[in-house]
Amino acid sequence: MNDAADRPIIAFDSGIGGLTVLREARVLIPDRRFVYIADDAGFPYGDWDEEPLRARILGLFEGFIATYDPEIVIIPCNTASTLVLDDLRRAFPAVPFVGTVPAIKPAAERTSSGLITVLATPGTVKRAYTRDLIQSFATKCHVRLVGSQNLARMAEAHIRGDHLDDAAIAAEIAPCFVEMDGKRTDIVVLACTHYPFLANVFRRLAPWPVDWLDPAEAIARRALSLLKPNGAGSEPEHGDDIAVFTSGNPDFSTRRLMQGFGLATV
């Protein structure tokens, strides 16, 4: 097993959405190497049934843990976290896992109107874990769950530089906005790490201003809190950070995007 200073942090996502979390993690944790893993061969996770997806992710991680011996694993993917995080912790008890769940608690603490929307994938919306969060932290709020089949794909296309139709995006976010008893939705929880890539588009197309709640910094801070001090005495070059795609064959625009994030595709 490698020394802690040599062991990377894995960030795992269904696609490139987890780059929003990786960006924050690299700022807060500059003294670690990162391996970004995108399960592009399985993307999008919202189309999967639960048990096959659970088996797929567990199987993938057997290889990831053996290959990279990570110090910690961040899963910036709501669908994967709400489905398989507990299974991963049981399967690999020596490795700390930091998951991503819808930021319902901070939304409930921050809302003025009491009207909150959780914008997620269909898988996250239907998960009992999400309902439990609402029951635990937002019983005094009206919480609308909106599951989009299309926004994760749209976000991936957007970050690669493809043109998106404003009307199509506006249609996806329209159910997020609720008016009730003279009050309006004032917070939309971005419960898919792909969605922050579209945040500026959402702001432009929204029928009224809301707080688009991005959990990326909170996830990075949680990861930082679980790390032991690095005794290496120097920071690694982030040029050593790599991106791994389960397809083994990301397209040119994706490779260029990884390069822009300072990740070498292997």
Rank of each mutant, 00 (worst) to 15 (best):
P106A: 06
E109L: 12
R110P: 00
R110D: 10
S112F: 05
T117K: 08
T117W: 11
T117C: 13
V118D: 10
L119T: 09
A120R: 05
G123Y: 09
T124G: 13
T124A: 14
R127H: 15
A128D: 15
A128H: 14
A128K: 14
T130L: 10
D132K: 14
I134F: 12
Q135T: 10
S136F: 07
S136A: 14
F137P: 02
K140L: 09
C141F: 00
C141W: 01
H142Y: 07
H142T: 14
R144S: 10
V146M: 01
Q149A: 13
L151H: 04
A152R: 00
R153C: 05
R153A: 15
A155D: 00
A155G: 01
A155N: 02
A157L: 10
A157E: 14
H158L: 10
H158W: 15
H158F: 15
I159Q: 04
R160Y: 05
G161R: 05
G161L: 06
L164Q: 01
L164K: 01
L164A: 02
I169L: 10
I169D: 03
A174P: 04
P175D: 11
P175A: 08
P175L: 07
C176S: 14
V178K: 04
E179A: 14
M180L: 14
D186W: 04
V188E: 07
V188P: 03
V189G: 04
V189F: 09
L190K: 00
C192Q: 05
P196G: 14
F197A: 14
L198R: 01
A199H: 09
N200A: 15
V201I: 12
L205P: 13
P207C: 08
W208F: 15
D211W: 13
D211A: 08
D211Y: 14
D211G: 00
D214L: 11
E217I: 11
A218F: 05
I219C: 06
R221D: 07
L224F: 14
L226C: 13
L227M: 12
N230S: 15
G231Q: 14
A232W: 00
G233H: 06
G239T: 10
G239C: 01
D240I: 00
D240V: 00
D241H: 03
V244T: 04
V244C: 02
N249I: 02
P250Y: 08
